[in-house]
Design a protein around this nucleic acid. Structure first.
Length: 499
RNA sequence: GCCCCCAUCGUCUAGCGGCCUAGGACGCUGGCUUCUCAUGCCAGUAACACGGGUUCAAAUCCCGUUGGGGGUACCA
C-alpha cells in the first residue's frame, strides 16, 4: 500500500464548524498516524456564499488546534493552486476530454421538462433526471442552441450496481438505476462541486477520503467519475483510480439534530474564547466516535495520533455534550505544569483587561511571582481558561479598587446574624498587625487560634468576613494563601476598608 | 415515493458468539476530606429498541418491524 494521502477541503462559508473541524482532525490524525500526507484544499466554487473572511477563519481554526498540513493553501505543494477558484482552466480541460470521450454529454432539458416527462411516464415527480438527453440528436442540439438554450453537462452513469467498502461502515451497495446522470457543469459554464471535488482528488493523488456521512449518498456518482478520470488519464491514483472512503458520523447538537451552522454551539471559536485548551478540545472531539481504550478517555494529542485507527471509528452519530467537554478540559488544565498553565492564562487576562498591553508584553517580577504562587491555587478550581481572570483579578488590583460584590454582601448579612463582621475583622486586624512573619501557615495558625479557639467562632463565621474583605467575593482561592500573596500592608488595608 | 446510513445507561462509549447477573467516563445523588469554592477519595443511579431465526450458547451473526438521520439540486 502506498503512502496515505488524505485531505480536508472545506468551503469557506461562515464560521468554522465543530463537525467540520472534527473531520479535519480525523484526516490529520490519520495522516500523522500512517506517516502519510495531509492536504488542505479550499473548495470555493460557490461564488454566492464563499468569502475571504471565512477563509481566514478556517486558517485561524486549524492553527489554534495546531493542525498543520503538508501540502495546500499557504504552504504550497506540487499540485498548486489549492484554491478551486484558481483552477477553472484545469476543469475546463477535463470537461472537454469527458465530452469528447462520450463519458459526459450536453443536456438541454429544463427542470420543468424533466418533471413533466416523469409525470407523463407515470413516475413520481421527484424521480429525478431520466437520461433522455443521452439520445438527443446533433440536429436537435443545434436547434436548442439556436433557440438560445444553454446546456448543462451531465455524467453518463453506467447501468450497474455500485459497491464500495467504507472504512467505517463496511460494504455499501447502491443498486443500478438509483443514481441519475448528474450535472457537473451549469448552463452558464460554471463547474460544480460534483465535478471539481473528484477531479482535484484525482489530480492530487488523494487515495483516502474521510468526510462527513452527509455525502455518503453522493459516493457512487463520484466513484464513476474517478474511474472516468482514470480512463482519460488524469487520475494519479493506482488501480481503478477510486480512493478509499470513510464516512465519519455526524456531530449532533441538542435534540436529535445535526449540529447546524445556525446553532451557536457549532461555532469552533466559542470554545477558543471560553478558554478550552487546544489539546483538550482535540481530546473531546476525538471521543466523538472513537475510543482510545475501554477505560480511558483523557489523552494527549500525541497519544491520539499514536493510537488512532480510522477503521475503529464508530459509525453512529454522536451528540456534542458540553458538560463532558468541560470535564475533559478541566482534567487537562489540572494536569498542566504550572508554567504552561500560566502561559495559557496570561492572554485571557489581557483580554479581560486585568493585564494591560504593556504588562502583557512584559510581566514584571512581582506579577510573575503572583502568577507563580496563585496559579496552583486556581488550577483545580477552573474548568476553562477564562475563569482564571475573575479568580485572579483581586490579586492584581489595589485595595481601593476592590469591589465587594452583591453575593458577598448578602453572605455578610447572613453571618452578621451570629457575629457582626466588623467584630471579626477587628480581632483579625489586631492579631495580624502584630505579626511580622507573613507566611501562609503562620497566618493560618494565628487566626485559627484567635478566632476559633479563643473566641469560639464557627469557621464559617470567622472566615467569611475575611474572605470578603480580601477577595470581595463569597468564593475565593484559599484565604491564607491569598493573604500571603497580597502581603501584610495590602491585607490589612483591605480589612480596614470594611471596618 | 425511491436510494443509503444508523440503533448498548440521560450523554459519549467498551463489547466484534461463551470472560456480560454488560465495563469505563460525563452527568446526577449521597458520604468522607475541608477556611469558601473546587480538587481528591468512596458509594449509589441507569442501557443491549422490538419480533423472528441460526447456534449447545447471541448485546455480538441473519431477516423483518419500529424509530432516528441523510440523499433524491444548474448548493457543498
Amino acid at each position: 500500500m502506498s503512502e496515505v494521502r488524505v485531505r480536508f477541503c472545506p468551503s469557506p462559508t461562515g464560521t468554522p464548524h465543530v463537525g467540520n473541524i472534527r473531520t479535519a482532525l480525523f484526516n490529520w490524525a490519520w495522516a500523522k498516524h500512517t506517516k502519510g500526507k495531509f492536504i488542505f484544499r479550499i473548495e470555493d466554487t460557490d461564488t454566492q456564499r464563499d468569502s475571504e473572511e471565512s477563509y481566514q477563519l478556517l486558517l485561524e481554526a486549524l492553527r489554534w488546534l495546531n493542525i498543520d498540513w503538508d501540502e495546500g493553501v499557504e504552504v504550497g505543494g506540487p499540485d498548486e493552486p489549492y484554491r478551486q477558484s484558481q483552477r477553472y482552466n484545469i476543469y475546463k480541460q477535463v470537461v472537454k476530454k469527458l465530452l469528447t470521450t462520450g463519458l459526459a454529454y450536453e443536456s438541454f432539458s429544463t427542470p420543468e421538462e424533466i418533471q413533466q416527462r416523469n409525470i407523463n411516464n407515470g413516475r413520481p415527480a421527484q424521480f429525478g433526471y431520466d437520461g433522455a438527453d443521452r439520445h438527443t440528436s446533433q440536429a436537435d442540439k443545434q436547434s436548442f442552441i439556436d433557440q438560445g438554450r444553454k446546456p448543462v453537462i451531465r455524467i453518463k452513469m453506467p447501468d450497474c450496481d455500485i459497491t464500495f467498502t467504507d472504512l467505517i461502515r463496511g460494504t455499501i451497495t447502491f443498486p443500478a438505476g438509483s443514481v441519475p446522470d448528474y450535472v457537473i457543469v451549469r448552463g452558464n459554464g460554471h463547474p460544480l462541486y460534483t465535478l471539481v471535488n473528484p477531479v482535484d482528488d484525482a489530480l492530487m493523488g488523494i487515495n483516502c477520503v474521510l468526510r462527513g456521512e452527509d455525502i455518503l449518498s453522493s459516493t457512487p456518482r463520484q466513484i464513476v467519475l474517478y474511474k472516468y478520470l482514470k480512463d482519460i488519464g488524469i487520475n494519479k491514483n493506482q488501480g481503478d483510480g477510486v480512493p478509499q472512503f470513510g464516512h465519519l458520523p455526524y456531530v449532533m447538537g441538542e435534540g436529535n439534530k445535526k449540529l447546524s451552522k445556525r446553532d451557536p454551539s457549532s461555532n469552533l471559536f466559542l470554545y477558543k474564547d471560553e478558554g478550552f485548551l487546544p489539546e483538550a478540545f482535540i481530546n473531546y472531539l476525538a471521543l466523538l466516535g472513537w475510543a482510545i481504550a475501554p477505560d480511558r478517555d483523557i489523552f494527549s494529542t500525541k497519544d491520539f495520533i499514536k493510537n488512532f485507527d480510522i477503521k475503529a471509528v464508530n459509525p453512529n452519530a454522536a451528540r456534542f455534550d458540553y458538560k463532558k467537554a468541560l470535564a475533559i478540559n478541566s482534567e487537562h488544565i489540572r494536569s498542566l505544569p504550572c508554567e504552561k498553565l500560566i502561559n495559557y492564562i496570561v492572554p485571557y487576562m489581557h483580554r479581560d483587561k486585568i493585564l494591560s498591553a504593556k504588562q502583557f508584553a512584559n510581566l514584571n517580577d512581582r506579577e510573575k511571582n503572583i502568577l507563580k504562587l496563585a496559579t496552583p491555587l486556581i488550577q483545580p478550581r477552573i474548568q476553562t481558561l477564562n475563569q482564571a481572570s475573575s479568580m485572579l483579578r483581586f490579586l492584581f488590583i489595589k485595595a481601593d479598587n476592590l469591589e465587594i460584590n452583591q453575593e458577598a454582601r448578602e453572605q455578610l448579612n447572613q453571618t452578621d446574624k451570629k457575629v457582626p463582621h466588623k467584630q471579626v475583622l477587628q480581632i483579625s486586624r489586631d492579631i495580624l498587625t502584630k505579626e511580622n512573619n507573613w507566611q501562609t501557615d503562620i497566618l493560618h495558625t494565628i487566626l485559627f487560634k484567635q478566632l476559633i479557639e479563643v473566641n469560639n467562632y464557627k469557621p464559617k463565621i470567622a472566615f467569611t468576613p475575611l474572605r470578603v474583605a480580601i477577595s470581595g467575593k463569597r468564593v475565593s482561592p484559599p484565604l491564607f494563601e491569598s493573604m500571603a500573596i497580597l502581603g501584610k500592608n495590602e491585607t490589612i488595608k483591605r480589612i480596614e476598608k470594611l471596618l
